[in-house]
Each structure stands twice: as structure tokens, then as C-alpha cells.
Simulated scan of single mutants.
Amino acid sequence: MADNDNRDHNRRDRDDRRRNADGGRPRSGGSGQRGYGADRGGNERRDWGSKERRGEGGDRRSYGDRDSRGGDRQDRRRDDRRSSGDRDNRRGDSRGDSRDNRGGRRPTGARYGQRGDDFTGGPRSGPVRQGFREERMDRRAAEPDLPEGLDLADLDPLVRQDLRVLSKDNAEAVGKHILMAAELVDDAPELALQHARAAKNRAGRVAVAREVNGITAYRAGEWKEALSELRAARRIGGGPGMLALMADCERGLGRPEKAIELSRSEEVAQLDREAAVEFAIVIAGARHDMGQHESAVLTVERMNPDRKDDSFSGLRLAYAYADALAQAGRTEEARDWFAHVVAKDEDEWTDAAERLEALD
């Protein structure tokens, strides 16, 4: 009987030590992290970035991070401040301008008030802007109708993966608006833009939603909106982003020099061959806008146009080279390259035949 009592006592003592080591709180998963929404029904942690999911590196930090070693950093900070206040009281510190009537330190604006932190040292969401919920309801009421029969399986798998950070119903609605934007962008760009905006409004922190909005706005000729959305998509998703479209938006806004500035960014080195060709074509166009036709020829030449390249990207590069030569006054060379494009362009994607006839 005594041995049983000793074992029970030892077990209770061991359990108490474990609770104390964990800060008196249950662990939430193996890492000890609690993400946004984890206190509301045990929902999974939600991330607002996509770098880790896309394999682009970077630590993923969720709202309300906890210390992975167990225990709560906020409690330790609060205890440290209390201990510091007690030591200062024992010293008889008389700096009244930094203390309240109870003798403890008063939080200064540089640490608390300016950033919205609370007394526990953790982040605080702050007050919700007045009328925010009403505006969101109005936006959703103004969304274009979604037809029946849309299948989310038609979405690119990477797009579906990006939408997994949303709730199921919201992800479904966003995916359907993206499908409609892609389907309508050629024949009805304005309606397609309404669907793209609806997707962005529902998923403003998802890179693919901002990118779709930017591309659709570009196709609709809304240069300013397109540039803003493409910049946001690049900030959220990382990587070089849609540099060619961003540069072309600068041209559309009458700022070819801004487009050329983009060509000096470090992200250009991250572009694959096809994207690099498109970007060079846009930069050559910006050079033409500024009357720098020989510079435009050099811009295209750096991409090494090749008559043996039968790809669509190679065909576009050859056409851009012929066009740059023509605008630089090098007519014979331009005629030769336009003739090459005509021979390769069996589906008549370009107007090379008309350009060649005009030169002749």
C-alpha cells in the first residue's frame, strides 16, 4: 500500500513539473506554435505568405507565434518587466516622468503606443476601421454572377494549392471567379476584370489572386490598376514577377524611362528564356518610344535571335528584331528578317507579310 502511495505521489509530482515546463498551457502541435484562428475551434494555422509553399525559401511566421521550446515568451517578458520594476522600486528610483503612481514603469510611446503593442509585448490587431464590414458586404453583393457548372478541377494545380489558405467556401468562390476571368478576357475584358476584382477582394493576400487581377486589368487597358496589382503579387509571392507586363504598363502610362529602369533590377537575372525574351521586346519598345532606335536594336540583339529557333518565343524575337531594324533605317536587314518570319509563321500570328510588302 505504501509503495502504491509513493508511486501515485511521484506521478503527480512529475505531471506538475511537466505543466510548469510548458508554462501551464497545452502544446499546440509539435512546434509549439499557435497560428491565427487556432483559438477559434481548433482551426489549422493560416499563413498569409506563399514563399515556403512555393519553395522559395524564407521562414514562415504566423500571427501569434509561440516559442518552440515550450512556455510563453509573452509571460516571460511580463515577468521580466515586473522584476525590473521591483528592482527599481527597491533602489528608490525617483524618475517621476517615466513612472506611474504605483511605482512601476509607464509604457513609452516609442515601444507601445506607436506600434499598437499591448502590455504583454505581443502584437495587437487594433480597432477595425468603421464601415469595413459594410463595405465588404457591398463589394460581395456587387460581384458578377457565376454560372452553374464551373469545375475547379479546370484550375491549374498550383493555383488550387495557393487557394488552400482560404476557407473552403471562399476558396471555391475565388477559384470560380478566376476561371471566369480567364474565359472572358479575350472576348469580354471588362466583364473579365469584374470577376478578377471579385477574386482579389476575397483573397487580397493571395499572390495568384492579385496576379490574375493585374493580368486582366492589363488586357483591359487599365494600366495603373494592372501595375499596382502586379507589384502586390510580386511582394506577396516573391520572385521576379511579371516584369514584362509591368514594364509595358509603364509604357502605357507614358513613362518609358520607368520601364527601362526595371531592366536594371536584379530580378531580371531570375527570368527564364521565354520571359526574358518578352521582357527584352518590351524594353526595345520603350527605347523606340524615346527615339533610341539603335539602342532598341542592341536590346534585341542581346537575346541572340536565331533563324533556327522554331518556337513561338523565337518567332516573336525575330519579328521584334526585324521591326527594330526597320525603325533604325536598316531596311535591307529588316527585309531579310521579315522574310524569315513570314516563312516560319504558317499560322499568321504576326503581320510580317504586310510589313515586308510595305518595305518592298
Rank of each mutant, 00 (worst) to 15 (best):
Arg355Gly: 05
Pro147Cys: 02
Thr331Ala: 07
Glu333Thr: 02
Ile283Phe: 04
Ala247Met: 08
Gly103Lys: 15
Arg90Val: 07
Asp100Gly: 09
Asp360Met: 07
Leu271Ala: 06
His340Gln: 10
Arg133Gly: 08
Ala188Ile: 01
Arg335Ser: 15
Ala38Gly: 12
Arg335Gln: 15
Thr216Glu: 02
Glu225Ser: 13
Gly204Asn: 02
His288Tyr: 07
Asp309Phe: 14
Arg102Thr: 08
Ala209Gly: 03
Phe119Gln: 11
Arg316Leu: 11
Arg133Ala: 07
Gly214Ala: 11
Ala320Phe: 04
Leu230Asp: 06
Asp5Phe: 12
Val212Cys: 09
Asp336Arg: 12
Gly204Ile: 01
Arg231Trp: 00
Gly57Gln: 15
Cys249Gly: 10
Gly109Ser: 01
Glu257His: 01
Asn10Val: 11
Arg19Leu: 09
Asp39Gln: 12
Ala192Ser: 15
Asp80Cys: 04
Arg19Ser: 07
Leu166Ile: 08
Asn10Ser: 13
Pro127Lys: 13
His288Trp: 04
Ala286Gln: 04
Asn213Thr: 04
Lys224Gly: 05
Pro147Lys: 08
Leu230Met: 10
Gly103Ala: 10
Gly103Glu: 11
Glu354Lys: 14
Ala286Tyr: 06
Asn10Asp: 14
Asp8Phe: 08
Gly35Glu: 05
Lys344Ile: 03
Asp93Gly: 02
Val341Ile: 02
Val212Phe: 00
Arg90Ser: 00
Leu179Met: 00
Leu262Ile: 14
Pro123Ser: 05
Asp65Ser: 02
Gly254Met: 06
Ala232Phe: 03
Gly131Lys: 08
Arg11Pro: 00
Phe338Arg: 11
Glu143Thr: 03
Arg17Leu: 05
Ala280Ser: 05
Ile178Cys: 01
Gly238Gln: 12
Asn43Val: 11
Cys249Phe: 12
Ala326Pro: 00
Gly92Glu: 01
Ser263Glu: 10
Asn101Met: 02
Val128Ser: 02
Ala259Gln: 10
Ala192Gly: 14
Tyr36Gln: 10
Leu227Tyr: 06
Ala173Gly: 09
Ala182His: 13
Leu253Met: 13
Val174Glu: 01
Ala244Ser: 03
Arg251Ser: 04
Gly109Pro: 00
Asn170Val: 14
Phe132Glu: 13
Arg164Glu: 08
Gly239Val: 12
Asn6Gly: 06
Pro26Ile: 14
Arg102Asn: 12
Met303Pro: 01
Phe279Tyr: 08
Arg87His: 07
Asp336His: 06
Ala21Asp: 06
Thr120Cys: 02
Ala196Gly: 06
Glu222Tyr: 08
Val342Phe: 12
Ala142Met: 03
Glu56Ala: 13
Arg105Asn: 02
Thr350Ala: 09
Phe279Gly: 04
Met1Phe: 10
Arg273Lys: 09
Ala199Asn: 10
Thr331Trp: 01
Ala232Tyr: 07
Thr120Ala: 02
Ser68Glu: 05
Gln114Lys: 12
Pro147Ala: 07
Arg287Asp: 06
Asn6Met: 14
Asp65Glu: 07
Val341Asp: 08
Arg53Asp: 00
Arg219Ala: 06
Val185Trp: 03
Arg99Ile: 04
Leu191Phe: 01
Arg139Ala: 09
Asp16Gly: 09
Ile215Cys: 08
Ala203Ile: 03
Thr299Cys: 05
Asn170Trp: 08
Ala153Thr: 05
Gly149Tyr: 04
Arg219Val: 00
Val165Thr: 15
Met137Gln: 14
Tyr112Arg: 15
